[in-house]
């Protein structure tokens, strides 16, 4: 009974942690733009949080650079279960133009498991909202 309540609460308002693993910043600006009045994702109940311990969803952009790898693993471990990872942008999904660069792991799924990929360079804010909605559906079906 309690589980159902928690699940309902999570679906109704997932808390998001945003992390940039070496991206050019375009995807991050689009994630921020999603919060602004034009696209306004807060009306769906999504809240951007600063700390891993409160987050349900880790939203990641950027091809993972070597320096950042340990930090992203640490953040992932600090998040409480159940947790979900969303890879924003082509860099996070597969490395994008940085494939073949030293100092870069090509994509977040080389480091932590990913649930949703949102391709694009950068993906439009509408695509990011679509990704979030798909994630919420996945949550509903029972992770």
């Amino acid at each position: 009974m309690l589980e159902k309540l928690v699940k309902w609460a999570r679906i109704k308002s997932p808390w998001i942690l945003h992390f940039n693993t070496g991206a050019c910043n375009a995807c991050d600006i689009e994630v921020l733009a999603v919060l602004t009045p034009r696209f306004d994702v807060e009306r769906v109940g999504i809240l951007l949080k600063g700390s891993p311990r409160h987050a349900d969803v880790l939203v990641c952009s950027g091809p993972v650079t070597r320096q950042v790898k340990n930090r992203i693993v640490r953040i992932y471990e600090q998040m409480p279960e159940p947790k979900f990872v969303m890879a924003i942008g082509s860099c996070a999904s597969a490395g994008n133009v940085f494939r073949g660069c030293y100092n870069v792991y090509e994509g977040i799924d080389k480091i932590i498991p990913v649930d949703i990929y949102v391709p694009g360079c950068p993906p439009r804010p509408e695509a990011i909202v679509d990704g979030v909605v798909k994630l919420l559906n996945k949550l509903k079906e029972g992770s």
Binding site: T65, Q67, N103, Y105
Partner: peptide, 26 residues
């Protein structure tokens, strides 16, 4: 700019340094 775990004495922009992408080991 290089990460903390980058080995000493390895300089990426020298022409004779090639990166083995498959293993990912520097």
């Amino acid at each position: 700019i290089l990460p903390d775990d980058w080995p000493e004495g390895v300089y990426p922009l020298r022409k004779d340094w090639k990166y083995d992408r498959a293993s990912g080991i520097i």
